[in-house]
Structure formats: structure tokens, C-alpha cells
Design a protein around this nucleic acid. Structure first.
Lengths: 245, 245
DNA sequence: CGCTGTATTGATAACCATCAAAGAGGGTGG
DNA sequence: CCACCCTCTTTGATGGTTATCAATACAGCG
């Protein structure tokens, strides 16, 4: 239960997956100019088991994390044990951006499955950005999309009823699991109903009920955490009935 | 903070207000390297009346805006005429960060009072960041705080009942109007009840009712848009009853 | 094969949106 | 200076949506 995260400093070539990674350039830039020039081609990687923390709120901020494999959530506690899940993350996405404001992380990042992540030392990243204009622009864009993503969630929590919130999340998950533009119709949720509820600002029971209702309407199949989307068009209509010209 | 590098190479002094501006360095950096080197010491400024738009959703993104005087809101339409207000901005704060993800703004920014703003051409800003590490770090921190701010709002909309949402907003407004750490107990709201409601995910009527209730409890005085906080401690308890050790 | 955490389903009630109408403010033009 | 109009705000009554409590079913795992 208390297997601690291991820090793997591979001496060999980076893994095959690294080559295919969307943020490979960022990863390399951070490691190449970073604290440990000896392992320039293989940035430090860490592996976590389900439930382990990548970083915790209050911990001093020193690096961002690129998620290579697995899925994570980030959440912020609100004192009485409740938490607001602020994001679900999939391979290729970056965790820890909310820490740039201060000197410590302000949310908890937790593995929802077995995960591998690359550490991106922030100092090295900043330095690399000085030399590489493209990296600079890429990073700004990354932060911009995090901001846009959070704004979209704000919209959802502020002005959408429960069914629309869930529909939007399902579509988001389905589209992020596949190549851009396409849609993954069959997938496995890595998070619990409670996690979904905490993300959408609902109760776990409500999420359960909504999923049952969607199943009853023939919009999807649910079996535990296995999801299959049967009627994507209807789901889209649910997620944005009047908007989206 | 204390080591604020001065980037001023200008011979003539910028306007008095610019000198006091919190983001003066960023402003100068953008203009000094920017499109119009002839006016390097006086960045292009625009003045808007109450209700006018700074930028609109869908407009091509070319620059950020530093708010010098007045107040603004940013909002996103959700199709049927409803809007979600994503932020209220005060002098020294920067608008347009959500556009960095793409090539056009994805929200509307609207003046809540007469405003003056500085245009910060984004290309110039990026270029300046290449030369000035301090500016780079400052800008990253800026984006980080925008992300942290949005996450905090997400928390509010996801897990707080209406009274807590309003209390949190009032405290936020009060603290941002004064020097850091202090609190402005008496101020004038520049936004309507509807704006507040659209920000908090409530209805205008609810905001009205909540303000009346707070007045009845002796927590504050409300007269139109004039607010005076009478019992800040109670307001804080409302905003965070169980959290905040 | 029972155990424990997770998920479903039902009943009830709290919370807040909605509809409706009256009251105040601020500005404009007489 | 006053009357008027228009918008914003307040306040009340009602209903819908969703949280909460409670109990059962289920799955994964030792």
C-alpha cells in the first residue's frame, strides 16, 4: 500500500512512447538544459500506482509533470473532506500549471490508474524558453488552453443543468481519448462516480441516476465503468441544445 | 517583488498613471520592441465608455490588454442569450489571456465603467520575453494566477451554496480594491446584480435576496451599488466555514 | 467466500430559478 | 425644477432540480 514513487533515471534511449509523445519537444528541452545534464536524452520519469499522489497542495513547486501513460485527476480540498475535482488528465497533458502563480502547488494530483510521468523542472523549462522561441510559444499556448478549459467548465457549472454537464463530460472524455476530430465510442472510466460528481458539482447519486437515465434512453451502455456511446448525436444535443451554430 | 528590474530605456517619462501601474514593465516591454518604435515610451492606449467592448469572442487575437483605469468584465455567451461572466477586472490586471490557446478571443470583454487600457501586442511581448528572463517569469506567473483564480471559482460554483458564493465575491472585490493584505470596506460595485449573478451561477433575484439578507443580519450596508462591509469576520466565516485552519 | 468500498435506486426536503409585480434611481426633455 | 420614462432592483409565491438520507445490490479482492 505504501509503495513510494520510484524515480527512474534510464541510461538507455528514451522509451518508444516518448518518441510518440505530443509534448516530446518540451520534455527534451527541459531535460537537456536541466539539472542533470548526464541524462540529457532521458528525462527523469516516475511511475505511480493507482491512488498515489503526483504532488500535493502546499508542496513546494519545482516542476511540472507530463503525463505519459495512465490517467490522473487534480482536485482541491474545501476543508470538510469534500473536494472539487478540477481536471481529468490523459496522456500527453501537463499537470501543475496552477502552481506557476506561487511557490507551491495549490491542488492535489492523484493517479487514477497506474501512471508514468516525466518531471519537467520548471527552472530548466524557463531557461530553455529563453533559447527556443518555438517552445515559448508552445508553452504559452498550453497555458492558454488550460485557461480556456477552465472557463468552459465554469460555464458548465454556472449555467448548465446536471444532464448537460454529464453529457459534456462524456463527450470531452470520448474526444480526448481518440485522435483529434475523431471520437472514441467505447472506453473505460478510470474515475469513480464520486470523482465525476466532484468534477461536475453534483452528488454521486445524481451521476448514477443520470447515467441510468441515459442508458434507459438508449444513448449509451453502462456496465460498471465501461462506457459505450450509442447515440452521439443525441448526446451532443444534450450538451449544447441552443448554442453552437 | 523587491527586485523589480526596470526595463525603462525611454528618455521621456511615461504618463504619471503609467508610472504607478503594477504591470508597467510588461507594458513597456511590449511597446518598446513592438510594431511602432516611434512611440516607444507611450504604449498605445485606448479609452472606452461604459458598456463598450474591449474585444469580442471570435475576433482575431493580436494583443492583450492591460487595464489602467476603470473596471471590466469578461463573459462567454452560451447561445440562448445567457452569459457566464468569467471575471471582473480591476486596474493593473490583464485581459485576453484565454485567447492564447487559439488565434481568436474566446470571450467578450466589456467595460463596466469608463476605462483606459494599454494594448500589449502579443508578438512583441513574446519577442521581449526572449530577451528578458524576468519578464518571462512575470508573465508565466500572471498566467498561473489566472489559472488559480479560475480554479477557485470552479470550487465556488461546484461546491458552495449561494450565500457562500456571494460572500466570497464580496471579500475578493474588497481585497482587490486595496493594497495587498488590506481590505477596502467601502466601495461601489461597478457591475449590475445580473452580472454578479452570471458570475456566481445564480439568478439576479437571488443575488438581490442574499444582499438583503446580509443587510438584515448587519453584515453589510447596501444602498444601490454602494457597499459597506460592517462585519468582515462574519463574512469570512460565511465564505469558508469549515476550511481555513 | 465473506468483506469492503462502490454503485444503484427510492423517498423526502432544501435550495434556488422562475414568474410576476411593485418600487427606486438616474437621466432626459419639457 | 419637475415630470416622465426606462432600467435596475427588490420582494413575494410557486415549482423544478438536485442534495440528502437510507437501504439494497454489486464488484473486486483478500
Amino acid at each position: 500500500m505504501s509503495t513510494r514513487p520510484r524515480l527512474v533515471t534510464a541510461s538507455a534511449a528514451p522509451s518508444q512512447r516518448c518518441g510518440a509523445c505530443h509534448s516530446h519537444t518540451m520534455c527534451l528541452a527541459a531535460s537537456a538544459s536541466g539539472a542533470n545534464p548526464g541524462t540529457a536524452d532521458a528525462p527523469p520519469t516516475l511511475t505511480l500506482n493507482k491512488g498515489q499522489r503526483v504532488f500535493g497542495s502546499g508542496t513546494p513547486f519545482d516542476c511540472l509533470y507530463l503525463l505519459c501513460e495512465g490517467e490522473c485527476k487534480t482536485e482541491r480540498g474545501i476543508g470538510d473532506g469534500q473536494t472539487q475535482v478540477t481536471g481529468f488528465y490523459q496522456p500527453g497533458e501537463i499537470l501543475g500549471l496552477d502552481a506557476l502563480a506561487g511557490d507551491s502547488y495549490c491542488s492535489d494530483a492523484i493517479a487514477l490508474s497506474e501512471c508514468t510521468l516525466c518531471r519537467l523542472p520548471y527552472g530548466a523549462l524557463l531557461a530553455a524558453m529563453g533559447r527556443l522561441p518555438a517552445l515559448r510559444a508552445q508553452f504559452q499556448q498550453l497555458m492558454g488552453s488550460e485557461i480556456a478549459r477552465l472557463q468552459a467548465n465554469l460555464l458548465l457549472l454556472g449555467h448548465a443543468r446536471a444532464p448537460r454537464r454529464l453529457a459534456a463530460l462524456l463527450l470531452d472524455l470520448a474526444s480526448r481519448r481518440a485522435a483529434p476530430g475523431r471520437m472514441c465510442k467505447r472506453f473505460r472510466l478510470s474515475m469513480s462516480r464520486e470523482d465525476i460528481a466532484a468534477y461536475l458539482g453534483l452528488s454521486g447519486e445524481s451521476v448514477s441516476r443520470l447515467l441510468s437515465a441515459l442508458r434507459a434512453d438508449g444513448v449509451l451502455r453502462v456496465r460498471n465503468r465501461e462506457i459505450e456511446l450509442l447515440d452521439v448525436a443525441r448526446l451532443r444535443r444534450l450538451a449544447a441544445p441552443e448554442a453552437l451554430a
